[in-house]
């Protein structure tokens, strides 16, 4: 007999979270947090499009405040989540909500962020899939699968030979074990995206090192979600 779903006691006695709903509140905070992490900094402006149950019942569950709280870097247990709209004003984050229909294939609890700062813009789609767990499914048009259950390295660069080897060789030297590895591209020789989920902590210096590769456009280290 074994624990077939690999559950921890703290999946049952937890998470510690601001209510009222693990999927509509805690999961929404996490989606905002991961979007902020992928964007690399707090955006100056956010268009937040709500799909399905997020659009229909989200406001009753504080989903809107939770998403903004995440973009501001608050954790799901932060009691300032209900006041996130005021905090956004203080922090210089302009936001706007809109209801959208992203199609039947989308999970009912889905959000599409369009984040921007002075010189750049990024689109991120993610879903809250239950119990506070999330999945980022689209990143600037690329289909991805990112759960932030692991520490994650996100590398955007040119689609050309040898790039995967260059990255993984260095991970090997640093004794970083890869749990999941996902590569996608828009077209042959175009832009490619690598999502590398690791068991071990990725040192900040490694992120800076990967940025020095001439074919790399952007590198992000996405921290594992706590609680």
């Amino acid at each position: 007999m074994e624990n077939i779903r690999g559950l921890s006691i703290f999946d049952i006695i937890g998470p510690i979270m601001v209510g009222p709903s693990s999927s509509h509140t805690a999961g929404a905070v996490r989606l905002g947090l991961v979007a902020r992490s992928i964007f690399g900094e707090q955006p100056q402006s956010a268009l937040i499009e709500l799909h399905g149950s997020f659009a229909e019942t989200g406001r009753g569950h504080g989903t809107d405040r939770a998403l903004v709280a995440g973009l501001l870097g608050l954790e799901p247990s932060d009691e300032r989540i209900p006041m996130s709209f005021d905090l956004a004003r203080d922090c210089g984050l302009h936001f706007q909500f809109q209801d959208v229909d992203l199609g039947e294939s989308q999970h009912p609890n889905t959000v599409h962020f369009i984040l921007s700062s002075a010189d750049r813009k990024m689109e991120i789609t993610g879903s809250s899939v239950g119990g506070g767990m999330i999945t980022v499914t689209r990143l600037d048009g690329f289909p991805v699968n990112l759960t932030a259950e692991f520490e994650t390295l996100l590398i955007v660069g040119e689609d050309r030979p040898g790039t995967i080897n260059a990255i993984t060789a260095r991970l090997y030297e640093e004794h970083i074990n890869v749990a999941f590895f996902n590569v996608a591209r828009d077209q042959r020789g175009g832009q490619a995206i690598m999502i590398i989920e690791t068991d071990d902590t990725i040192p900040g210096g490694l992120v800076e090192y990967f940025k020095t590769f001439p074919w790399v456009h952007a590198v992000r280290r996405i921290l594992r979600l706590k609680e």
Partner: peptide
């Protein structure tokens, strides 16, 4: 329900 902090056991 008032968006205060709780421990989900097993759910919120």
């Amino acid at each position: 329900a008032g968006m205060g902090c709780i421990v989900a056991t097993p759910t919120a």
